[in-house]
Design a protein around this nucleic acid. Structure first.
Lengths: 182, 182
DNA sequence: ACCTGAACACCGTTCAAGT
DNA sequence: ACCTGAACACCGTTCAAGT
């Protein structure tokens, strides 16, 4: 990549980080380009769509989450579910709108973030299935429901801005998925 | 109201119903006006903002939900929570985006839908408090958390389009709020 | 009273023209 | 190769001019 192109790429990423953090995943791309001091066409050249920008910003984090989910298999099963939900919620609340974006990405296999997002989700599911076999998570519900409900609690936190509520509800949800609830 | 004004009002309402149902609560207001066969200015004259339109469409339904929540106090407490969540979820999924809109309305006391939404939410909370005193809902969590979590499950249903998942998660959530979970 | 639509300030996205 | 910004097709919202 040409030096000026590389510089533009970095500037766009930094601007996107800043504006996604401020305005959420639906931040204006024109403002991202303006903030980066670059023409709007340059943004589209480097990142053909919003998803590509998200991917560049989040791939590593999702990858880390996937790895973490795999490591959690070693933990005592009683702690693993709580730990998974805490880690997942942390990441998915990075930017406002991310729970919605992640769910959308998961439903569109072609998208830029799909790989990382799907791998993470899969690892989470495998952990949950492991916990179901261990008898600590109820088995009358598919494993994929767990992260889905966690994402929806994360979404609620965005809307209400009440982080204590989010913590409480994460506990309620954990209890709801506990095997003794079924 | 003048006859032509009344007619425009009705047309706008019908168009909004149709487009909210098709596109969700963020449907284009310009398209609503176009569909109604009316200038955009006329829409704004009758409904100063999107919320006013929502209010005209939903006030009665929210009012009905409030009344229903009050009647549920008569039910055996074991059934009341499930029943409340089912009724609430039905209404709040009327239009895509409504869970988000309702939460937003609840946070802006001046808004058009605030009264009806708040009254409904309050009635729901009182029912939950009643169930907490009856010992069927866990008491270590504020009553307002219950409808909030139900709204977030409703939101998830919008995103995934998986209605069976929504039903399952409503059960998980109900179990999570059950007194034997705390 | 009420209606209309042009006007303004924004978007996302594409693409011809430039270097 | 890469960058730029005008162009197009949309928004939400206001308000002067009309009836």
């Amino acid at each position: 990549m040409r030096a000026d192109a590389r510089r533009n790429y970095e500037r766009l990423l930094a601007a996107a980080e800043e504006l996604f953090r401020r305005d959420g995943t639906e931040a204006s791309l024109e403002e991202v380009a303006r903030t980066a001091g670059v023409g709007i066409g340059t943004l589209y050249r480097h990142f053909p769509n919003r998803d590509a920008l998200l991917e560049a910003l989040l791939r590593e984090q999702f990858e880390g989450l996937r790895a973490a989910a795999e490591r959690l298999t070693e933990l005592p099963p009683e702690q693993a579910l709580t730990e998974l939900l805490v880690l997942f919620t942390e990441r998915i609340t990075q930017y406002r709108g991310l729970p919605a974006s992640a769910l959308a990405v998961l439903r569109t296999p072609g998208s830029a973030l799909y790989e990382a997002c799907h791998a993470m989700n899969d690892a989470g599911q495998r952990l949950v299935e492991h916990l179901q076999r261990a008898g600590v998570v109820r088995a009358d519900v598919p494993a994929r429901d767990v992260l889905a409900l966690a994402a929806s609690v994360a979404w609620l936190g965005e809307q209400s801005g009440d982080l204590e509520q989010r913590e409480r509800l994460l506990r309620v949800v954990t209890d709801g998925f506990s095997a003794r609830s079924s």
